[in-house]
């Protein structure tokens, strides 16, 4: 399955979740998403998402000067972002539960013509 398609709908929640754990700057967030298992996430998608979440008020930003290197723009989750993440997490759990149940049934059906359970 093309995970980039799946990622599209879930990227906001993934980015918010990562930033909520710890403030971070652009590429840092990409790296943590990849470490978490979302290997196919595109940098440009993450940067665009950060910008959009910032515009929508879910993220705030602050600039951290670094010695010898460029300034880094760090993102942090706002209370609105926290609320948004909670709502998305709830939606996700319902969706994921429904999908899991569907896929389990499909797996059972393909495994054996079992009629058990329907009693």
């Amino acid at each position: 399955m093309d995970t980039t398609q799946l990622l599209k709908g879930a990227l906001d929640a993934a980015v918010l979740a990562v930033v909520q754990r710890d403030d971070g700057y652009g590429y840092d967030i990409v790296r943590r998403l990849r470490e978490a298992g979302l290997g196919e996430v595109g940098e440009a998608s993450v940067y665009g998402t950060l910008r959009r979440l910032y515009s929508a008020g879910s993220l705030s930003s602050y600039v951290v000067p670094s010695d010898g290197g460029p300034h880094r723009k760090y993102y942090a989750v706002t209370p609105q972002g926290t609320a948004s993440l909670a709502a998305q997490a709830a939606d996700w759990n319902i969706f994921a539960g429904a999908m899991s149940a569907l896929l389990d049934v499909a797996g059972d059906a393909s495994g054996a013509p079992a009629k058990g359970g329907a009693r």
Binding site: Y27, E43, Y47, G48, R51, G69, P70, R72, K73
Partner: peptide, 12 residues
């Protein structure tokens, strides 16, 4: 949008 792009790319 592009702010930090170069730094991010350098990291990458």
């Amino acid at each position: 949008l592009v702010d930090g792009l170069e730094a991010d790319l350098a990291d990458q």
